[in-house]
């Protein structure tokens, strides 16, 4: 290998990317190889997204892409352009006013150390939208891609059901005011 090619190999290709995260647009200059998880944490300081295994097994880095849960460690930030990214901060970022999923984790004691929690929050938030009244089996299947080493999962399964309860109650309140009863009960 001559000097020229070895220099080429070492060069770090970068690109200017447009990323839409939690409803805000960002223009960033990042290395092409930079994973979405690292851009969220390092460039946007959204450190709620945790990085565990970095090969898609643990689920801690789960974010929503256009509303669907995906692994942010298995997608390049450049590839997330033209999509809407939602992190755990986009679901709820105020300790005084937690989202329904976050409240459900508090109510059900669904966390201990909290490392895996953001991945569960983003996963369950999307799942309950899709399945507002899950069976226990469905709840377990929904979180089967997220690892937790503290809780033993029982209280996380409870948190899925608690989220569904809270969201249904909230949906009912909405329906009384804006006639979306049939939508909310689906």
């Amino acid at each position: 290998m001559n000097q020229m090619t070895s220099n080429e190999t070492m060069a770090e290709p970068t690109s200017t990317i447009r990323l839409s995260v939690n409803g805000r647009d960002h223009v960033l200059e990042v290395p092409d190889r930079k994973l979405l998880s690292d851009v969220l944490r390092q460039d946007l300081s959204l450190t709620g997204t945790h990085v565990g295994c970095e090969h898609g097994v643990c689920g801690a880095c789960t974010v929503q892409l256009d509303g669907d849960p995906i692994r942010s460690c298995l997608i390049f930030a450049a590839s997330a352009q033209d999509h809407e990214v939602t992190t755990v901060e986009g679901i709820g970022d105020d300790p005084e006013n937690p989202s329904d999923v976050q409240q459900a984790f508090i109510d059900s004691h669904g966390l201990q150390c909290g490392f895996c929690t953001p991945g569960f929050i983003t996963t369950i938030d999307a799942f309950v939208d899709e399945n507002p009244d899950p069976t226990e089996e469905e709840a377990r299947e929904a979180i089967s891609g997220n690892l937790c080493r503290c809780t033993g999962y029982q209280n996380i399964v409870k948190a899925v059901h608690r989220t569904a309860e809270l969201r249904a109650a909230c949906g009912k309140q909405h329906s009384e005011t804006d006639e979306e009863a049939s939508e909310a009960n689906r």
């Binding site: 849960p69 996963t123 089967s144």
Partner: peptide, 9 residues
């Protein structure tokens, strides 16, 4: 095939 979050992508 893997988990739902993997199948989404």
């Amino acid at each position: 095939v893997a988990h739902p979050a993997i199948r989404n992508r």
